[in-house]
Every structure is written in C-alpha cells, then in structure tokens.
Design a binder for these strands. Structure first.
Lengths: 192, 192
DNA sequence: TATCATACCTAACAAGCGTTAGGTTTATTT
DNA sequence: AAATAAACCTAACGCTTGTTAGGTATGATA
C-alpha cells in the first residue's frame, strides 16, 4: 500500500481548515507547514506563494461545485424536483466540505485582482445554474417570482448558512434540514 | 457650530470599514490611524488594544440591533406584520450599516474567548427575538414550521446576505427586496 | 555506480506588525 | 499667569511575517 495522497493535497486541505479558522491574513505559512508536517520554507516547493494556495483552493472548489450540480440536474425534468435537488446539494456541499466552501464564500476580498475576476466568474456561473432552475419553474409552473435573481440569492445564502451552525450530533440530519428548506421555498413559490 | 463627533467615534467608524475590507487580522493599526487622521501610536490614547476596538464595535452593534428590533415589534400585534417588520428591519440594518453588521457576522472567530462569549450571548438574544415571532405565528396562525429555530436561521441568513450584493443604484430598492423576501417567507409558511 | 531530479530542511532577509514610553502641543481650569 | 489634563506625535521595542537562497537527504534512472 502506497500513501497516494500527495503532500500538495495535504497542504491544500490544511490550508482550507486554517484559513477558515483564522482567515487568510490571520493564517501563517509556518503554522500551515506545521500542520502539513513540513517546515515553513518547504511550502514553496509546492506553491509559488501564499496567494496561490488561496486561489487554487477557491478556483477548484467553484469548478467542482459547478460540475457536480450540473451533473445532478441533468437527469431531472421537473422544476420542483430540480429545486429540491439544488437545495439539498448546496446544503450538503457546504456542510460536508465546510472549510473549502466557507473560504470560497468569505475570502474573495483577499484575492488579488486577477484571481478575483476568475473566481467571481465561476461563482456567477454557479448562480446562473440555480437561477435557470427558478426561471424554468416560473415558465412551466407559474412560480411566484418577479425577480429570479433575488430568490437565487436568498436560496444560496440560507442554504450556505447552514454550515455555520450545523452540528452532526444535533437533532436534525442534513437531509431533514434540506427537506425543510426546500419545502419552505417550494411552498413559498407556488401560486395560491 | 462645534465638531461634536469625537475622534473615538471616527476611529470606530473607520475600523468597521477597514475590518470589512481586509478582515481583522489583515487590517493594520497604522492604516486605521491614517484613515482616522492621526498617527499610529495615538490610537492607544483612545483604546487599550486592537482587540478592544473589534469588541466594542461588535458589542455595540448587537446591543443596538436588539434594542431597535424590540422597539419596532413592541407596537405590533399581528404575527404576520411582525414577520414583515423583522425581515425589513434585518435587511435594512445590514444594508445601511453594512460595515458594522458584516463584521458582527464574520469576525466572531477573531474575538478573544471572553469577548466571544459576550457577543455570542447577545447574538443569541437577537435570534431569540426573531424565533419568538415565528413561534407566535405558529401558535396563532398555524404557520407550517416544525422547527422555528431552523427558519429563524434561514431568515437571518437570507436577509443578511442582501448586504453582500445590494447596490443603491440597482433596479430594486431595499423596500422592494424586503417586501419580496417577506412575501416568500409568509407565503411559504402559511398552510395550504 | 554515477547522475539527477524531487522533496525537504535550515537559516536568514527585509518589511511590517502591535504595542509602549516619553515628549509636545492644545485647550481648559484655577 | 500658572497649572493641569487631554490629545496627539515620534521613535523605538521585540516579534512575526512572507519569502528566498543554499544545502541535504532520498529514490529513480542511466
């Protein structure tokens, strides 16, 4: 058995955790190196700079989210079911990989301009996918939404927020929470 | 006419702005001093430490939110109207004073343990007020919510999130957004 | 066995950090 | 006019930061 997980991956993983704990400027490369099991300077054998670590983390996370959500939605026809799937996915992704997603949500301001634009573009792409679900519901099932973008943002924020308070040992499972939130949205959108 | 706004207030104001821009560890006291129109060391004539500035900012903001929301709800009887008022208040407070509230939402992790407990206690108190509104609606108007706390958090996150994308020059006013979100929640909670 | 790239360590660098001590200006009070 | 206290400046402190240069193991390749 070979240890297949590369040091580079370990650094990224620990960086996600550390950046979340202390925020990007508050996290030091020496502490990151310590957690990754190497010396401070050795990080530069794997990355060109601290900024590159942050960017790679955020960029990869956004790409992954776009790909996975697209895949899950591809097989579904009903707008209602698409909405449920989206809510469930967004919550689960944020809760099970809370480090990466938290950073992607909160550390945009610490990206250098060039990197910022790239990540924001992907974020907008992700939002667009969700917006499309809502638009389809409006067209096909007369959902009550004047501004799909408004509700897209509401959905994203309320679902992402789950990761800030969710505890695995709590009374409710991820699925229960997702069902609850999906029900709120579905019920709220349907015409009376 | 005397210039009544104290330097202390100016520092707090600029700190809110700066902390939001760069996050707490990323903001330097020298930059803060520069924006406040004094030299770096002079900050210590007004505050004992950088941490004290952050704490005072967050603590004051939480107290202010609790007081204002309580005041606004005191005159209202109808749960539905209370919910609308809450949504409107929470959005407006976050949008008009986005620096303070953003910090209060995101910089908890940078508070020292003692300060952390104090601010979290007030945050919980604020949440409790909103939860009470939902519970009243459930009791009096049969709102469809198994877990009021769950919906309290959804409300808080989706409303607070508005401040991350709202632009005064945009197509929608704060009132329009608030009405839209309130409608979504009300419609979603009412029994069918 | 010699070569060579990979992965890492060590030690230092210049710059910037929060914080402090002591002096100076300014305004108020006596 | 003298005394006092608040508001601020200056210059430094010890420390940490991201980053770099140069050296050392390690394992594969030739």
């Amino acid at each position: 058995m070979k240890e297949t997980i590369s040091r580079r991956k370990i650094i990224l993983q620990e960086a996600a955790h550390l950046f979340r704990e202390k925020s990007y400027p508050g996290a030091t490369l020496r502490e990151l190196a310590r957690r990754a099991g190497i010396q401070g300077g050795s990080i530069y054998h794997h990355f060109a700079s601290k900024q590159e670590i942050l960017f790679e983390l955020m960029d990869h996370t956004m790409s992954d989210m776009i790909e996975r959500l697209s895949d899950q939605l591809a097989d579904i026809d009903s707008p209602l079911e698409k909405l449920r799937t989206t809510v469930h996915f967004h919550i689960e992704y944020h809760v099970t990989g809370p480090d990466q997603t938290y950073i992607t949500d909160e550390e945009l301001r610490n990206l250098e301009p060039e990197n910022y634009l790239k990540v924001v573009a992907k974020r907008d792409c992700y939002q667009q996918i969700i917006e499309e679900v809502l638009r389809a519901g409006k067209a096909e099932q007369d959902w009550q939404l004047d501004e799909p973008k408004l509700y897209t943002r509401a959905l994203i924020k309320m679902c992402a927020g789950v990761s800030t308070w969710f505890k695995p040992e709590g009374a409710l499972s991820i699925k229960q929470i997702a069902d609850s939130y999906a029900a709120l949205l579905c019920n709220g959108l349907l015409p009376r």
